[in-house]
Each structure stands twice: as C-alpha cells, then as structure tokens.
C-alpha cells in the first residue's frame, strides 16, 4: 500500500535575515505499510511525524528517496489526483479543515471536486456520515458540533472520497478525553469493518495500543518498529524520547522491577486485572501447599 524508501526531507529555515540554512526533519526513513493495517506513528513533537504524513498525500515532495503509494511514485505529477483519491487525510484542527457551512455540504466537498453526478454524491455523503455515526446531524452547522463530532465530520469528508487509506495527523490533539475515545473508536471501526488502511499519527501512547504496528519516531529517524507489545516492552526507550506510557503499563513495569512476577508489557486495564488475578491465585496455591 505505502512504500517509503530512504526518504529525506529538509525545511529551509532563516537563521537571521540574511542567512538561511536547511534543517533535516526526515532523515533516511524507510517504511512499508501493507493494506488493511492500522499503523500508528508515535513520537514527540518535532520528531517529523507530521511531515511524514504530508508526504503520503503529496502535500510535500521528497528531497531524496522515494514514496510509492499503491505503486505510484509521488513525484509523478500525473499520478497526483490518483494518489490523493487513494489516500484521504484528516488534520489536527477540526475547525480549519471543514469547508462547508453544513455537515453534509462539507462531506460532499471531495466528491464535488471530482465532478461526480449528484445522486452518487448524495449516496456517498449518506454512507460516509453513517459510517462515522453522524447521519442525524447532516443538516447541522459544523459550528454547533462538539470537537469530537467535528473531527468525525472531517473523517467522513475524507471517507467520501472512497480512499483505501486514511492518514490522520494528530486527530485527537485538540480534543478532550471523551471526544478522543469517540474518534479512536470510529478509526478502529473503519479499519475493522471497511478494511481501510489507517495511518494514525499521535503522541498519546494510550491511543496506539490497539494498532497492528507502531512506528516510533524521534528527531527524523524511525527508532523502533513493531507490535504494541514489542514497542512497549522497550519501556526505557519510550522514556528516553520522553513519551508518556499508559499508566497501567508503567505501573506493571515498576511492579515487575520490584520483583513481582507480572508479565510485561501490560497494555490495557483488563489485561492488568487478569495478570494481577493470576499472580494472586498463584500465591494462594503456593500457600496451600
């Protein structure tokens, strides 16, 4: 689906009025994402994860290396609109990406740009809104929606372009915890039910525990790649790049360090409870002997 080879990206920064220099934000990034996966890109601020996201939708072009989306090179100008309809994009600030003055108008923006017939647009809009659970709000003004709902509208807007992959660039950064759950739930649903490849960029570690693969980035490099279990097992590396770890994971890790026979990494509260129950039962059995 997405294939990145030795991607380098540099920004020009003005050090003073006359002197400019290049700052490398992505340095030799190689990455492969297969169809249907839910991949989380995790990293602190300034790690280059948003820049990477923009490469996936051809909003930026590589300085070195190549990005292939579905076998199409992003440098190929002819493939531009093809790639953009393969990869949908959701940004951080919901207010700054909603174009329409009503929910359905906004969702229709993508298909309208593709010059599709009206009946087909109406169908797509209804389907997309149903998928994010906002069909009953179709006539509302986006201004009257909550943050979570606005972000779901933005997801529906990307969805209406019938993409096979959606890249979400920190979609939850401006939301409260309840709204974050709401958005993450929708993302997982789209991945499971519609089989859409998801690239979720975030700095909240608790949002990535359900991912198929986690890519940990720091200062323009991929420093680790693997399943949530593998990544969270390397607790010290996460701490080193100043990422917060889910509370239960940290608790379990500290308990393990104290000599309690808990199996790390623990990713969810349920898992923690079962682990603790197991240890408790084991202890009781040993006492009985």
């Amino acid at each position: 689906m997405i294939d990145i080879k030795n991607l380098v990206h540099r920004y020009t920064i003005w050090e003073s009025d006359t002197k400019k220099s290049k700052k490398t934000v992505l340095d030799d990034v190689t990455l492969d994402i297969s169809p249907g996966q839910l991949v989380a890109i995790l990293g602190p601020n300034g790690s280059g994860k948003s820049t990477l996201a923009k490469h996936l939708n051809v909003l930026l072009l590589p300085d070195e290396g190549t990005v292939w989306i579905d076998g199409k090179d992003t440098k190929d100008a002819k493939a531009l609109w093809d790639i953009r309809s393969t990869v949908g994009m959701v940004f951080q600030n919901p207010d700054n990406q909603i174009v329409g003055t009503s929910v359905e108008e906004d969702v229709a923006f993508g298909p309208e740009n593709k010059n599709l017939p009206s009946t087909l647009i109406q169908e797509k809009v209804a389907d997309s809104l149903r998928a994010v659970g906002l069909l009953h709000k179709r006539k509302s003004s986006p201004f009257r929606l909550s943050g979570g709902q606005k972000q779901r509208v933005a997801i529906a807007g990307a969805l209406a372009g019938t993409p096979r992959c959606i890249v979400l660039d920190e979609p939850t950064a401006m939301l409260d915890p309840a709204a974050r759950k709401e958005v993450i739930h929708v993302i997982h649903k789209l991945n499971k039910e519609a089989g859409i490849t998801i690239v979720l960029i975030t700095h909240h570690t608790d949002e990535v525990v359900g991912a198929d693969k986690i890519i940990l980035m720091n200062q323009g490099h991929i420093i680790q790649e693997g399943t949530p279990k593998e990544v969270f097992d390397n607790f010290e590396l996460l701490k080193k790049v100043k990422m917060d770890v889910p509370q239960v994971t940290e608790l379990a890790w500290n308990l393990a360090r104290q000599g309690i026979p808990i199996k790390t990494p623990v990713l969810t509260e349920e898992q923690f409870v079962t682990e603790m129950m197991r240890i408790y039962e084991d202890g009781k059995n040993r006492e009985d002997c």
Partner: peptide, 26 residues
C-alpha cells in the same frame, strides 16, 4: 494561519481551483 491550514485540507480533498465540479444538490 487558518487559511494556510484550510488550503492544505482543501487540496488534500481534491480541490484544484480549476476544472469542472459538480454539486450534491444542483
């Protein structure tokens, strides 16, 4: 700042400023 964000979001959704576009409710 908002307009620069919005421009990027519009471009990501296929707005090019040229070519025919259709309407959901013509």
């Amino acid at each position: 700042r908002r307009s620069s964000d919005l421009a990027m979001a519009m471009e990501a959704r296929g707005y090019s400023g040229e070519g025919e576009t259709s309407r959901m409710y013509p």
